[in-house]
Design a protein around this nucleic acid. Structure first.
Length: 693
RNA sequence: GCUGCUGUAGCUCAGUGGUAGAGCACUUCCUUGGUAAGGAAGAGGUCAUGGGUUCAAGUCCCAUCAGCAGCUCCA
């Protein structure tokens, strides 16, 4: 063995190379660099992999090594996972017989899944937190143990941890060696890495409790998941909790009620949105905006009904493929009566419906079948294509009750839908046109924070319709078009629609949830199912290709996301109430009414506050109701023919002639100016370290 | 759909098995004022719904409905 091979050789981030004797750990390296670094060291990165300080460095070839301190985003992830161990240890001490599942680091914190005889509630949090604080104060080190697979299985059996045993036998069966981490009496199967000791856990808090299926499988038992977070300092934790509070305040469900934008009523039904006058204005402005662009791009507006016969959806595939997520069909009254007469039970009825032996109507789950029938209503020539049919079409889907919430997941919603019937040579251009529209919409809202996802077929699933060849063509077309966007995009198998691949636009809301908004989908299958054709220049029939697209997704979801995006402060052109007139006292009401009439005649959405309140109180009310402009009118204004304009963002702008104020408002509306997008302070950076097997 | 929590005035929320509460909003009166809360009085309730326990239930138990968090799903 040469000298080089019997030594550890490392390269530090500054490029310098150092040698250490065999068996050296990352801690030894830190110590070799300096006592200060040794004291500050939390973990290390070796050749790009985050490891603990006790990691024994390999002999031979030099490795890149970086010591992590709490300033490094990856260190936060390591510490949080260690805190998850402390939490699990505390719960096991408080609850005998607790079975451990998984406890990874996630964005913003960590969780741990448990199987317990008696469920935990958040009333248990103080006791758990107190026990955790006690355990942290003991400052016992995290100690790594390596075991062979068989030893590990035996160990977990001895520890009475059946979930860990199962995981070792199934998920980790191909591993020869696995690792455990010990802290005091607590021993847990874990890949690591961990912080050296819990003294690094500066501040933590248990946040919530929820159910989660074992291994994410709906057919397995439900475990209890405890969510929590941890930071190196109390200040960071406080800031984090403050961000959560701030995010709650701009939740569209909260703002929607405060600002009177929409209402959901038990008597109408779950997930069915009632648009109030104010919310309707926002929606109508958006629809008008998109309609303008549709006209420019050569779309034809159509209207179709809310129901269609079952056969239509049998042909399209919606009824057989997605029965569970549809409202049950509406059945012909006489047919139903006749069946009842025969003593037909519900199960039989359901079978008859499936087999097509009785007919009925379905609340439409999608608009495409209706649009297809418009296409088919007359013979089509290649000269007519592309035919672009657009509709603000309302569709109904019976989403699982646990999924519903606010405007973002509902049972009835209106898509800004369109279907393009195109020749093969037009597909690429038309997809690009659709993407262009999406870009226009997002740019108009000042929405920069979205990502593009190309949804492909899951090769292992059989939920898709159509030939392999069609799918390959369509997927290639989507990839190609997405590449022209100039934004990085991800390819995600399993995210395709059942009839074709798609390009989705995904945004994040204020509490970190991701929502799919706009979508563009290429479809070779529905044209085939409906036997669509057009006459080509060769005077022979050809099959068109369909493109489904909805740049807003649905009006409901889009408005919900917009409420949060603007934190309820809409740009002037969208604001339900654009200008509010406030009188300084009742002496100025007559003049204010003249101004009000003038503003209204110019098309502004004006309201007035002529109450006998003091001006400060009226301003406060207007500000809380997020009115973009308040126009204050007092005796001085009546005298001079002016108004005093108060801008929600900038405050008092001073007195100006009525015409000047009007011009300002009209210009801002015409330009659809977006003046301010609400930003939440960014959280401290954390790299999520994969610390679960 | 699953697990857990919650449901009291329009809103935000107190409420110990024994007479239903507060703040804000609302109505009326007083106040007539210049850029984030002037004062007073009044009105407002089937304590989500349906059962049960109890002399007595907003409070304890069960079911249903709905909301929230998460899981699973999302054409």
């Amino acid at each position: 063995m040469s000298v080089v091979e019997s030594q550890v050789s490392i390269q530090l981030p500054d490029g310098s190379v150092k040698q250490f004797p065999a068996g050296a750990t990352c801690r030894d390296v830190a110590a070799g660099i300096g006592a200060g670094l040794l004291k500050a060291a939390v973990a290390a990165v070796v050749d790009g992999v985050v490891v603990g300080l006790d990691y024994v460095l390999p002999l031979g070839q030099p490795v890149a090594l970086q010591i992590l301190t709490k300033k490094d985003p990856a260190a936060l992830g390591v510490m949080r996972h260690s805190c998850a161990h402390v939490m699990a240890r505390a719960i096991m001490r408080l609850r005998q017989g607790t079975r451990l599942a998984f406890g990874p680091t996630i964005e913003g914190g960590f969780y741990y899944d448990f199987e317990l005889a008696e469920p935990l509630t958040d009333n248990d949090f103080p006791a758990i937190e107190a026990e955790m604080r006690r355990l942290i104060a003991l400052d016992e080190p995290f100690e790594r143990l390596e075991r062979s697979l068989d030893e590990a299985i035996q160990l977990c059996q001895d520890l009475d941890q059946p979930l860990k045993v199962e995981h070792l036998q199934s998920g980790l069966a191909e591993h020869e060696q696995v690792s455990f981490y010990r802290q005091g009496e607590f021993l847990d199967l874990c890949r690591g890495p961990h912080i050296p000791s819990p003294k690094w856990i500066g501040a933590f808090k248990l946040l919530s409790i929820a159910g989660a299926y074992w291994k994410g499988d709906q057919s397995r038992q439900v475990l209890q998941r405890v969510y929590a977070t941890a930071f190196f300092t109390q200040e960071d934790l406080d800031a984090h909790l403050q961000r959560i509070e701030e995010a709650k305040r701009r939740d569209h469900r909260v703002l929607g009620r405060q600002l009177g934008l929409f209402h959901i009523d038990d008597m109408v039904g779950q997930g069915l949105i009632l648009w109030t006058p104010k919310g309707s204005i926002v929606r109508q402005e958006l629809q008008d905006f998109i309609s303008q662009h549709l006209k420019r791009q050569g779309y034809s507006q159509v209207f179709t009904p809310h129901v269609g016969k079952l056969d239509l959806y049998r042909t399209s595939g919606h009824f057989p493929y997605y029965q569970d997520s549809q409202y049950p069909p509406l059945i012909d009254r006489d047919q139903l009566a006749a069946l009842a007469e025969e003593g037909c039970d519900c199960a039989k009825l359901s079978d008859l419906m499936k087999s097509g032996d009785i007919d009925g109507y379905l609340l439409k789950p999608m608009n495409c079948p209706h649009h297809i029938k418009i296409y088919q209503s007359q013979p089509r020539s290649y000269r007519e294509l592309p035919l672009r049919l657009a509709e603000f079409g309302t569709v109904y889907r019976f989403e699982q009750s646990g999924e519903l919430g606010g405007l973002t997941r509902v049972r009835g919603f209106t898509q800004d839908d369109a279907h393009l019937f195109v020749r093969p040579d037009q597909v690429a251009d038309e997809i690009r046109g659709c993407l262009e529209l999406v870009k226009i919409v997002f740019a108009a809202m000042g929405m920069e924070d979205y990502h593009v996802r190309v949804g492909l077929r899951d090769p292992h699933s059989d939920k898709y319709v159509g030939s392999d060849e069609n799918w390959q063509q369509a997927e290639a077309a989507c990839r190609e078009a997405a590449a022209t966007l100039g934004k990085p995009f991800s390819e995600e198998p399993g995210e395709a629609a059942f009839y074709g691949p798609k390009i989705d636009f995904v945004v994040r809301d204020c509490i970190g949830r991701h929502w799919q908004l706009g979508t563009v989908q290429v479809d070779y299958n529905l044209p085939e199912r409906f036997d669509l054709s057009y006459t080509g220049s060769d005077n022979r029939p050809h099959r068109p290709i369909m493109i489904h697209r909805a740049p807003f997704g649905s009006m409901e979801r889009f408005v919900g996301v917009l409420i949060e995006h603007f934190a309820g402060v809409f740009p002037l052109w969208l604001a339900p109430e654009q200008v509010r007139l406030l009188t300084v006292s009742e002496k100025s009401v007559d003049y204010a009414q003249q101004v009000e009439a003038e503003f209204r005649a110019a098309g502004l959405r004006v309201s007035s506050d002529y109450r006998g309140e003091k001006l400060g109180g009226k301003i406060r009310d207007g500000q809380l109701e997020k009115v973009p402009y308040m126009v204050i009118i007092g005796p001085r204004d009546a005298e001079a023919g002016t108004v005093s304009v108060r801008d929600r963002h900038e405050g008092d702008l001073g007195a100006m002639p009525v015409a000047a104020a009007l011009q300002r408002f009209v210009d801002e509306i015409r330009e659809k100016r977006v003046r301010q997008v609400a930003q939440l302070a960014p959280p401290p950076e954390q790299t999520v370290v994969a610390n679960e097997y």
